[in-house]
Design a protein around this nucleic acid. Structure first.
Lengths: 212, 212
DNA sequence: CCAGAAACTTGACACTTGTCAAGAAGGAAT
DNA sequence: ATTCCTTCTTGACAAGTGTCAAGTTTCTGG
């Protein structure tokens, strides 16, 4: 009986700990989300913990309570950002019943995210560049890159399927192409080049049938 | 005669000023070159003027003497870096007499620069990302991007010409493709992925005949 | 040779940075 | 109600930042 009691007690204790962990993690994500605001505004190089805190409802001490250091915080930000990103086109891929429908749905989302979430995208390119200097970022960045590649591949595969074909290039090459075009369009868009988005759409519209 | 003398005096003064300017500019480039060492090592975010000075033969005051501020210095670095970069493949393009020769020459240079100048390349990607945040960088970065695009286009055009064909995509798309592949390979290479370079070469070897 | 300009050094300034320790506030269990 | 743990605030610290002014050295034209 003693064993049962201690067993139950341990289960209760473990449940409590799991709860605490979940709460802890939820808070971390709240903080990461707040940090992403400032990071997207200023970029990695110019963002300090104090600046993050001032642009949020938190004090700078909280960030140190929930994160071991600055890199820990930013890694958490990157990981959180990932989850949002890679599903952007999934609905379009799932519901499109023709090549045209898929094309237009994809392009609409592409234009919208370039327009409305430019700050998050530039942060991603910033952090990917940081990963080339800071080894601590590399694992997460490479992982996100892989899942973005998979995201593009799902679109291309579906597009090819709808035309009874198969993509003509590797997932890596296809991702490189779209990522390169997107990155260039983003920079031009941020430099107030009004033609950046339409020209990206034209380019992708022309490219899609030739690669799939 | 008075006019002639003053005219001659002015010419001498102007010549002296041009000389001073040239000397001034040469020194700026010397300093920029020294700065590039540290920038390539640490990246934009972690590099301070004092660090640059300590890793060089100069004191930190000289940098402020020759550059109005940190941005001015780094802009100068970027512009100087450009001139070296865009001519990398010109000799190969000029001397190759067959598609194979061009391919192999290009791939050899590609592998070599990825291997030996990885730090300069990662700095370029870093600064290009910074340009998305810092307007002062944009003009130079966009200009360099354009000339890199032209560089790739020269290779592709020559490759197509040697096969009696024409490139099938736009200069922008072609550059996006190669730049994306290179960037990804660079990151993997820096993460000690030994397959990064060979896989890049394979990919490019496969791609070249399909796009030109 | 010498005065004045150019080139450079040095040290200081005001400020920001990441980090952390000491303690306050809040809530839950005994 | 008291105690204890989690959560958070506040203020401080040392180190590092860009900038600049005052001085020193080096060069150069007369």
């Amino acid at each position: 009986m003693a064993r049962q009691v201690t067993g139950a007690a341990r289960r209760v204790a473990e449940a409590a700990e799991v709860l605490r962990d979940e709460k802890f993690n939820a808070r971390r994500i709240e903080l990461a989300e707040a940090a992403l605001e400032t990071l997207g505004e200023l970029g990695f190089a110019r963002t300090s913990l104090r600046e993050i805190a001032q642009n949020s409802a938190f004090t700078h001490g909280v960030f140190h309570y929930y994160f071991s250091d600055k890199l820990d915080l930013i890694c958490c930000c990157v990981r959180h950002y990932k989850a949002k990103c890679v599903t952007r086109y999934d609905e379009v891929v799932a519901t499109a019943t023709s090549r045209d429908e898929l094309t237009e749905g994809f392009l609409a989302k592409l234009a919208a995210t370039l327009q409305n979430e430019a700050r998050m995208h530039r942060l991603w390119y910033d952090l990917r560049a940081q990963a080339m200097f800071e080894a601590a970022f590399r694992k997460d960045v490479l992982e996100i890159d892989k899942s973005l590649e998979a995201m593009i591949w799902r679109i291309a595969s579906r597009y090819a399927e709808l035309g009874g074909k198969r993509p003509v290039s590797s997932p890596a090459a296809l991702y490189a192409l779209f990522d390169g075009l997107f990155q260039s369009a983003l920079l031009r868009h941020l430099a107030d080049d009004k033609t950046a988005i339409p020209e990206l759409l034209d380019e992708v519209r022309r490219l899609l049938p030739t690669v799939c």
